[in-house]
Nucleic acid binder design. Structure first.
Lengths: 132, 132
DNA sequence: CATGAAATCAGTAATGATTCCTATTTTTAA
DNA sequence: TTAAAAATAGGAATCATTACTGATTTCATG
């Protein structure tokens, strides 16, 4: 039960901290494999889940059916590009007040909310212009 | 390309309209099968996707890895119980203003947002009390 | 430092939701 | 009535993720 150190977990976490694009488990695997050639995909999944359960990292579910991971656990929001599928950070003031709005007329305990925004990212908008 | 009537699609949509608990494809299948015994699961998936693409129904992704469907396409929010996994409607005033908040400092076009709330539903809270 | 129980691992098989494929059936415009 | 287009049933395939297993690593304790 007690957590023991593991080189693999360290490498996975270190890698995730270098990225701001919220990679998937597969992407983490492909990258970590560069310096740790025989790490297994199962180990990547297990450790990402472990880290997420501990609250050390965040698991993002943005509707594309694939889990994304984020080493930044501070309150912030995400934007998903409908064209390239990229997931980026969205710096904005807190919208935590929507919790109060939701609680107004609801029986049951509202503990939190998940919000993400979607549209077309800057990069895709620009490359679309070039294409015309 | 042109849409043709299909009895199966009709039955699927009719069933979905009777439910307010946002069933999954599997649940739709199990129920529709009662009155239409040899409908196939693939047909249910195909039609739910078709209806969602047309905007006739809504596809909900609430983080449990299974798609839920809702015949109510009006603006409203959803609550997911962390205990029983149930998805229920949440009557609350519009929080569409968070789009403006998000647009303030973002390069790229924000078209919409997905928000759902989570916690413990009334039913689970009450049955938890009984258990103590 | 040695050691052994617990944790972790690599590799692979299994799972589960969803999509794809194909031969057959249904719909519908002409 | 008929034939092209759309839809279907049934089953195979896909893909992200989880589970299993025997080997390896970690680390508290002697």
């Amino acid at each position: 039960m007690a957590l023991k150190y593991s080189r693999q977990r360290q490498v996975i976490y270190d890698f995730l901290m270098t990225r701001k694009d919220h990679p998937t488990a597969e992407t983490v695997y492909q990258n970590v494999r560069q310096e740790y050639p025989n790490i297994s995909l199962g180990t990547v999944y297990r450790n990402l889940t472990l880290l997420a359960d501990m609250g050390t990292i965040q698991r993002l579910r943005v509707g594309d059916g694939i889990d994304h991971f984020d080493a930044d656990t501070s309150e912030h929001y995400h934007f998903v590009c409908s064209e390239c599928g990229g997931v980026t950070d969205l710096k904005m003031e807190s919208i935590a007040e929507i919790l109060e709005t939701a609680r107004k007329d609801f029986d049951g305990e509202i503990q939190g909310h998940v919000t993400y925004f979607y549209g077309i990212c800057d990069k895709c908008t620009k490359s679309n212009l070039l294409r015309k």
